[in-house]
Design a protein around this nucleic acid. Structure first.
Length: 152
DNA sequence: GCCAACGTTGGC
DNA sequence: GCCAACGTTGGC
């Protein structure tokens, strides 16, 4: 089983929204590197839910990959901000997954705490200029994040 | 295929 | 709101 981190702006979609909805299609990712990670996900993988562009940013919970290799429907929808005219139904370029709510942490693990506990080598999130919205987390690092969460 | 211009992300 | 970092676009 693999671990991942999914970024979302809470104003757009928050861990509370996921908790309410139970599951969501992780649509709208329009970056090839992030898409490649989405395509590498397997059913049962766990993903940390990260709130970005908020004060403070940080990991707010956990979700699980329920379904993989779904062609992102928003790429075909001219009304969608994620519409991609270069994509077609028979040859989609954007793929995603469905995730389900697992847990909302009682206390956020802030970016500041993550910076204090991990190196940029360990956590892609911490690398200078990083803008990836989907990234892998090494299992040892994931275990330490979970331990951090449990310790408070 | 280069690269300048532009747009976006996201922490601060 | 600023701006560094990075991805994408499009002219040549």
């Amino acid at each position: 089983m693999n671990y991942w981190l999914l970024k979302s702006e809470p104003d757009v979609f928050s861990i509370d929204d996921l908790k309410k909805q139970k599951t969501t299609l992780w649509d709208g990712v329009r970056n090839y590197q992030a898409r490649n990670f989405l395509m590498a996900m397997q059913v049962g993988d766990l993903a940390f839910f990260y709130h970005s562009s908020t004060e403070p940013p940080g990991i707010v919970g956990l979700c699980r990959v329920l379904e993989t290799h779904i062609a992102d429907p928003s790429q075909f929808d001219p009304q969608s901000p994620y519409f991609d005219p270069k994509s077609s139904e028979d040859k989609p370029r954007w793929w995603t997954v469905r995730v389900g709510f697992v847990e909302k942490y009682k206390q956020m693990i802030t970016l500041e705490v993550l910076r204090a506990k991990f190196s940029p080598d360990e956590l892609v999130l911490l690398r200078r200029g990083n803008r990836l919205s989907v990234m892998p987390i090494a299992s040892g690092v994931a275990d330490r994040i979970i331990a951090l969460k449990a310790s408070r």
